[in-house]
């Protein structure tokens, strides 16, 4: 069976912010993530800059290489091309926004090298 994305990326999904406020996934703003992370005891927002996007050997998957955090640590993830990432100040973006829009109805722009995505790490990692 074809792999698919988790249900919360579908347009209209109800998302609870850290302060309890409810928003639809397509209405989320950069500030919602930043404020929620500020309230969180465990999670910290990191900036993850897209350094490379390569096609995977697995159909419909892409390999995205990020530089994570202030140390620009290299992290690669293999995701479905329609998997949406939240880009700072821009919103939802994926390797194939047409597919994201088609499958999830989530408004989406094209993820590109140089984009800075919101990611999470643990606050007390060291």
């Amino acid at each position: 069976s074809a792999p698919s994305l988790p249900p919360y990326f579908t347009k209209g999904s109800i998302i609870q912010l850290a302060d309890g406020e409810l928003k639809r996934v397509e209405d989320l703003k950069t500030e919602d993530f930043i404020q929620s992370a500020e309230i969180s005891n465990e999670l910290k927002i990191d900036s993850s800059t897209v350094e490379r996007i390569d096609s995977s050997h697995t159909p419909n998957f892409a390999i995205i290489q990020f530089a994570v955090g202030e140390h620009r640590s290299q992290v690669s993830v293999e995701v479905l091309v329609e998997y949406p990432f939240f880009v700072f100040g821009q919103g939802w973006s994926s390797c194939c926004p047409e597919r994201t829009s088609q499958l999830l109805e989530l408004p989406c722009t094209k993820l590109s090298v140089g984009d800075v995505c919101i990611s999470l790490t643990l606050k007390n990692l060291r």
Binding site: P7, S13, L28, F33, S40, H71, V77, L120, T121, R126
Partner: peptide, 19 residues
């Protein structure tokens, strides 16, 4: 209607500690 926590939408990209 299901309600999802905000952090489920954000990828957890934990760099491996190199030092």
């Amino acid at each position: 209607v299901p309600v999802f926590p905000w952090h489920s939408l954000v990828p957890f990209l934990a760099p491996t500690q190199s030092d």
